[in-house]
């Protein structure tokens, strides 16, 4: 189904962090084949632009052991970096820092960090998770003349560090934590409230995605679980990998789910509804020999190509149909 393509070389190796890969413009089909990838190497976020027929363009943004992700809002697009020190927002190419929010260093005994980045496009909100379990909501207003970014709200609903955040249609926000709990939030009339809490089974939920009315989680136990987001009912459980699932992703137009694990395997699953019942099937499975996979991303909603990163290796692996 998918075939391995020549890799994109990185200037530095990929760090061992869940979801350590983002692709700019992955959700729009108008990128013209030009893609920008973000991979974290220790305290540097590496941005790599790959366009057909052109040499790769590299840029580095210094952070501190972190996660970086692009947020496309109605008003503008920003590159968000969540790290040990706090939250930074940059121009999408990483050239200029637009905003900086330091984390509250109240406790010297545990490491403070920000992890999990998503955005609510229509409301121009950037959401970032923290090690205290709270979720910071920033409003990004840009009328073309004045850019105004500020902390709008702090959501509390988790007692342990946030692992990942994702937003979906109909103003849904989902958050996952280190004990495997998943919370579903709804935004309405300028307020965000928790509607569902799905109890975890102690293994962290490292990566979450929303698809249709479902929330999908990849877990440290190697499982993938799919819940109905409104009721929190478990619909499907997949014993998917032999080690930690470090990242999952969804290609919305192709209805495909991607999962990458420390067990070196990448797997592609088809998602479908038959008589209003959810169906899942494994479509593709391949081991990237001796590579503990850390990040995975489809590069477009059609799911024709996906990209992978692995700990200690300086390349982005590509697979295409």
């Amino acid at each position: 189904m998918y075939k391995r393509q020549p890799s994109i070389p990185l200037k530095a190796s990929c760090s061992a962090l869940c979801n350590n890969l983002d692709v700019s413009d992955a959700n729009s089909s108008q990128s013209g084949g030009s893609l920008t990838f973000a991979v974290v190497h220790k305290s540097v976020s590496h941005l790599i632009n790959s366009s057909p027929g052109l040499p790769h363009i590299y840029r580095q943004v210094t952070c501190k052991e972190s996660e970086s992700s692009w947020c496309a809002l109605e008003s503008r697009k920003v590159l968000v970096i969540a790290s040990l020190k706090g939250i930074q927002m940059f121009e999408p190419d990483g050239s200029i820092m637009l905003f900086w929010h330091a984390l509250n260093r109240s406790d010297e005994k545990t490491a403070q960090f920000a992890r999990g980045i998503t955005s609510i496009k229509s409301d121009n909100l950037v959401c970032v998770g923290t090690s205290s379990g709270s979720i910071l909501i920033f409003s990004v207003d840009d009328n073309g003349k004045v850019l105004n970014i500020q902390l709008k709200e702090t959501l509390s609903g988790h007692d342990v560090p946030i692992t990942d955040l994702i937003s979906g249609e109909s103003d849904t926000l989902a958050s996952a934590d280190e004990l495997g709990n998943i919370a579903i939030w709804k935004t309405s009339d300028k307020s965000i409230s928790k509607v569902t809490l799905i109890k975890g089974q102690n293994y962290p939920c490292s990566s979450i995605r929303l698809w249709d009315k479902y929330i999908i989680g990849g877990y440290g136990s190697g499982h993938i679980r799919i819940y109905e987001a409104n009721t929190g009912n478990l619909e499907i459980e997949i014993a998917a990998h032999a080690r930690w699932v470090n990242a999952i992703d969804v290609a919305f137009e192709a209805n495909l789910l991607l999962s990458a694990s420390e067990d070196t395997y990448v797997r592609v699953w088809s998602l479908g509804l038959v008589d209003n019942k959810l169906k899942v099937e494994m479509k593709f499975s391949e081991s990237v020999t001796d590579v503990q996979l850390q990040g995975c991303k489809f590069t477009s909603p059609e799911g024709l190509t996906f990209a992978l990163t692995g700990y200690d290796f300086s390349e982005i692996y590509l697979f295409s149909r």
Partner: peptide, 22 residues
Amino acid sequence: FSLPVDSPIPYGTEMPGVIRFF
């Protein structure tokens, strides 16, 4: 390091290969 795929799975986890519908 070579990472053997034919290896033990961690204690308390499950062998891959099953999809359960609820």
